[in-house]
Amino acid sequence: MSNAYLTYAGKRLGQAVIVILLAYIFTFVVVSILPGDPITSVLRNPQNGFSEQEIAEIIAAQGLDQPVLVQLWHSLSAFLTGDLGMSMRSNRPVATLIAEVLSSTLILASSGLAVALFLAFTVAYGTQVVPKKYGQGLLRAFPSLFLSTPNFVIGLFLIHLFGFQLRLFRVIEPDGFWATFFAAITIGIPFSAQIAEVLIANLDHEAEQDYAAVARSRGIAPRRLFATHLLKPAALPVVTVIALTVGELLGNSLITETVFGRTGIGSLVQRSVSTQDLPVLQAIVSLGAVIFVLVNLIADLLYPLLDPRVKIVVGRKRRHAAADDAALGLEAGAKP
């Protein structure tokens, strides 16, 4: 723990807090400034049967009769104390609504992440040990195929094949083991493609290095070369890729949960979208930003400890170049 590291950590922490606050304000501005008025579209909708007095009560309770800046101030100061406000539709605290469904989405996201890592490392391992004439090209095509497939198509394919044809699970029991397993595959596959692309590019880059040639000339087997030499340097940037894309799991849960009929954050978003329940949407989007910022903070703080080659320099860090490339899916080997 050098002094430079602590300064860097403090600075990074400050940045994280600022980004979270700005993300909250940004979301607030998007949902309140853009056209589309929840009061007329939802509360005055005759289907909902609110009386004028009830509407006035809801408006007063939500503070919707006040200027936008005042609303923002109230909302932001409540957010800072951990109060996410009240749902406009169900008149229950937003925090309770989220807490009810959070565990389901966490299970989905974490098993999806596990599936993604397993698939990515398996495919990447294959590209290094499978000879060219036995289908290495096929393995290399997997990431781009997975990146080009909408994840609802993957989900529907799995449901059709394993649910309808093979009857491995029942679609009406979305929380059963197999249903969760296939939902995790659905959410994990596009994610695995992103990890695999970076991993394969890094492995290829490492395999061209002199030290790898030396190891090969001493007669090392491809499997051992992969495990003892290539894997470690190639896998480190994967930490960055995961950190940058993990927030997307929350967004993608929207589609996966719809396809599999699960309840979770995604289905809560969908319900809130259709009822224009802005406080819930505001809270979930901010939650997404908080998760992203925290995960990246952890990754940034871990990185100099994991990789001694990374020197902390004042100003922008070296890691960012790798992170940018990873986020863009650029091949590391192709860069000058």
């Binding site: 980004v19 979270i20 993300a23 940004f26 979301t27 998007v30 949902v31 853009l34 056209p35 589309g36 927030g247 997307e248 929350l250 967004g251 993608n252 929207l254 589609i255 978003v269 979208v273 224009q276 949407l281 979930i284 989007v285 997404g288 930003a289 992203f292 910022v293």
Partner: peptide
């Protein structure tokens, strides 16, 4: 920081 798909969803909700 905002998950891309969620961002797209809230913007399209606000716009219609």
């Amino acid at each position: 920081a905002i998950p891309k798909f969620l961002l797209a969803v809230i913007v399209v909700t606000a716009l219609g």
